[in-house]
Amino acid sequence: MAFVEPVTLRERGVRLEPLALSHEDGLRAAAADGELWKLRITSVPEPEGTRAYIESALAMREQGQRFAFAVVEEATGKVLGTTSYHDIVPAVRRVEIGYTWYAASVQRTHVNTTCKLLMMGHAFDTLACHVVGWRTDNYNFASQRAIERLGAKKDGVLRGHALRRDGTIRDTVMYSMRAGEWPEARAQLLYLLERYSPAA
């Protein structure tokens, strides 16, 4: 049995459902909203590479390495982006959250905070993870700020760790959160979400 079983998570009008080939058109449209593939510090696929991107995620799921979700607007069924559990290590009950990107029109809204609340909650409360991790490009300062806002702690920097899409070699900033830190982080996420949508 896989450590991360298929699941659909819902909160505040956002739905996380297992990524499938049926999401190809929606994911392509989400990436086109802001031409996100032109950013050198992300892994967003170019339009013609969307299907291969999904196929790669599904192959990694079969190998137990990654579980990708489509981020969907509940009211309309519109695909807003994608996010994943990855580097899944069942023996130590650890997952990382990454491969995350959203259409430009929903960046800096409640969507990312809601997705993180759902994924962290599932990881800690359902999967009983001891640790949840994140990694990001050392030049992706927006991502680093977002991870730090979650309450994650910076573990360090892996120098010369991975290739960027433009062929340059990146340093990777690593973060993590332990299970004992989750209740405080959850309270902060809920507080942030109330500020986004006081009526919710």
Rank of each mutant, 00 (worst) to 15 (best):
R93W: 06
D171Q: 02
E181M: 06
T168L: 14
R10P: 07
A123M: 09
M177T: 00
F67D: 00
G167C: 09
I88M: 06
D166Q: 08
S84D: 03
D87A: 10
V111G: 02
M120A: 14
V111P: 07
V111H: 08
S56P: 07
Y196V: 04
Q65C: 08
E184H: 05
V7T: 07
V89M: 13
N138V: 14
A52F: 12
A57G: 04
E74N: 13
A20D: 02
A32W: 03
Y85H: 07
E181S: 07
T83V: 14
R145W: 05
G167I: 03
E62L: 12
Y175D: 01
R61C: 06
D33C: 13
R93T: 05
D137K: 06
N140V: 07
W134R: 10
A29K: 12
S84K: 07
A30I: 06
R195P: 05
S43M: 12
Y99I: 01
L19Q: 05
P6F: 10
Y191M: 11
E194F: 09
I97R: 07
L127E: 03
E24F: 06
V7F: 02
Y175W: 12
T168D: 12
T82H: 01
T50R: 00
E96S: 11
A146Q: 08
I97S: 03
R170C: 09
P198C: 10
T42M: 15
V72Q: 12
Y53C: 01
L158Q: 08
Q63W: 06
P198G: 12
D155E: 15
M60R: 15
G167D: 07
G133S: 10
R66T: 06
A103D: 13
A70P: 13
L58E: 01
A179C: 08
I97W: 08
Q188E: 14
A57H: 09
L16E: 06
R12A: 14
V44C: 04
T113L: 11
H130T: 11
D171Y: 06
V72N: 11
D166N: 14
L163C: 11
A75T: 10
A146R: 11
S22D: 14
P90T: 12
V173E: 00
A52I: 05
A187Q: 15
R28D: 03
V95C: 01
A2E: 08
A20T: 05
L163R: 10
P45R: 02
P198W: 13
G121Y: 06
G167K: 08
R186D: 04
D137V: 05
Q188H: 08
G160E: 05
G81V: 09
A75H: 11
W134S: 04
E17A: 14
N138F: 15
M120K: 07
F67T: 00
G34H: 01
V95T: 00
R10F: 09
V14P: 00
T100V: 14
